[in-house]
Write a protein that binds this DNA or RNA. Structure first.
Lengths: 338, 338
DNA sequence: TGATGGTGCGAAAACGATTTAGGGTGTTTC
DNA sequence: GAAACACCCTAAATCGTTTTCGCACCATCA
């Protein structure tokens, strides 16, 4: 592989001049710049990213942490979509993307997330879909590296958030508008997102003048069909059965659907059900799931854009927490009641 | 950040000795090795991967190309699963994973896939889910870099393949065993995988003594619900309507389901349908989809394992094309006919 | 005693780039 | 005519490692 020295030899300039010519410095004449470019083209020159990174301390490589406890971040369409959009935007700015892990070992010891990032010299990091309580994750966030978090706000760090409060509000309003008065919410495990949604659910219910019996608020889990199936069975067996059940997410809604149908009820005639996320699956089900579609595309793009902005102009970038609105997809899993 | 020089200063040895101590060379006494390790531990030393890579020409970083035309490799569960398993296995061997793209630009020009790999100095490359006809992809494969391809065989290159011939054979046998005699196959666009499946479909049909009317073999597309919907509508309107339709994949089966149901037929009582892949969606549908589950987990693991083996001992690694068997999931979208 | 061999360590040259400080022209300015 | 100033270019240091080669020391052996 040709290097900068070869080019220098080819066109009779010094290494430094070649480097400058290739990097758009102004103190090199138009003439020589052209000669250098031509030589570089001819021998198929590609800079060595390692050497460059070693010298400049910039890798043009971003670390992404998209791993939940089940090691399946990629298998959840919501996160896969965000990552996909993040990737597209990053590439647009000539950044690469590498997965962060803590399974690498170096000198016999396993690295932490942060150590991995330092080892690889990532210019910045995007964190999503992870347990934000983990010390290791907190260490990474507070490391001083440019960071953007998805769906979790930290002081002095940029974050991109799905508008859970508005989203859940809209969902409840819609369901109320369809005539439902007994609305239950099977929610996911404790997290920032869950808190926002639960709070919003309760407030919205109060605002439309409805009481939420404590048994209508069921702690279940995200993306866990078995768990939500049980939770919904519980709700169905209540003496005061709800007419509509909001699920933690679209995928988990499948557990609810199963519970309802195998108990001999029809959706939505007997019991209505709503999801959250708006993944493609939701619109493939029959009946089509009523859900709140999160704008994963915009979230991923904004995350990358702001992270890179922060990397490239840290002084002028203001730390903010962006909230991105989703949109209600009516579907037909929520019946109109009179 | 502490570097090797700092450690040398800390414990009074030379840089070379420290390096050797950390890398398990034998010409350094146990005593000093311990001292060096201790010092390294104390100051939280992490090697600089760039410097190391620059010197050794090994990055311990693998490039992955998982991008179909629709830029949505990650959104297809089949490929996301393979990638996930690939990642786990790679990490086990202390390799990182970076996405390959051709959108990066360097010195004003866009890089090709191959250029990107050279620029980043990937030790090896895994290619899947891509149009294997593209010149750019072929260039990458023939570049001399260690390569493993998923679901496509190239001379002198390792590949991991889903057992499409056996898979399709099993599927047809099962359907035939359920009593069907009029079996149609809506297949995906031309590719190695498609050819294997179509060939196997035809052979198996012949082997069980059935003729395949040409109109029972419909060219459609993978992962494209609109396309498969149309194809199935076509089949339904045939004077000699099939009793069972095999779809390109589970996701695309949704188009078939839609077509069948909106034509007023019931699944499986009136028309049976089968998918391919065995993604989680398939088992969430009602009726549960009869499908052939591909062993994505094993595929991803083997791909990483063999790629790394090839990287680390190129002489002793034999080039082979591994075929990984899937398993039939009966589901209940295929009815028993007498 | 002198040759031999092993052991433990260090000096120094790479790897391929960037970047600072300065040198040599030729032209302008007073 | 000297000083000042552009302009274009180069030498050399540097980033943090790895790895070759050689040196010094000590023990062993004939």
């Amino acid at each position: 592989m040709a290097n900068i020295k070869d080019i220098a030899a080819m066109c009779g300039f010094s290494v430094s001049t070649v480097s400058k010519a290739l990097n758009g410095y102004t103190d090199v004449s138009h003439e020589t710049k052209k000669k250098v470019m031509k030589a570089a083209e001819e021998c198929g020159y590609l800079p060595n990213s390692m050497a460059r990174a070693l010298k400049t301390n910039r890798t043009h490589n971003l670390g992404v942490l998209f791993t939940d406890e089940a090691q399946s971040g990629l298998k959840q369409e919501y996160f896969a979509s965000v990552l996909d959009a993040f990737k597209v935007e990053a590439e647009l700015h000539s950044y690469d993307i590498t997965f962060i892990s803590h399974n690498l070992n170096i000198n016999g010891r396993q690295m932490s997330y942060l150590e991995h990032c330092k080892y690889r010299n990532f210019d910045g990091v995007c964190i999503a879909c992870v347990d934000f309580q983990q010390q290791e994750v907190l260490d990474l966030i507070n490391s001083g590296l440019p960071v953007v978090t998805i769906d979790h706000v930290f002081d002095n760090h940029i974050s991109i958030n799905s508008a859970n409060v508005e989203g859940m509000g809209d969902l409840v309003k819609y369901i109320y508008g369809m005539g439902h008065r007994k609305i239950a919410y099977v929610h996911g495990k404790k997290s920032a997102v869950t808190e926002q949604r639960v709070t919003s659910f309760c407030r919205e219910m109060r605002d439309v003048g409805l009481k939420v019996p404590p048994e209508y608020l069921v702690l279940s889990a995200y993306h866990d069909i078995q768990a939500t199936k049980k939770s919904v069975q519980q709700l169905i067996n209540l003496p005061n059965r709800p007419t509509c059940i909001i699920m933690p997410d679209d995928y988990a809604a499948l557990g609810g659907i199963e519970a309802i149908e195998s108990a001999g009820f029809r959706i939505p005639e007997d019991i209505s059900i709503a999801g959250y996320d708006g993944i493609s699956l939701s619109q493939m089900l029959r009946p089509r799931l009523t859900t709140l579609k999160q704008d994963t595309d915009r979230m991923g793009h904004e995350a990358a854009r702001r992270l890179i902005e922060q990397i490239e102009s840290p002084m002028t970038t203001l730390v903010q927490n962006l909230t991105i609105k989703g949109s209600l997809i009516p579907g037909n899993s929520v019946a109109r009641i009179k």
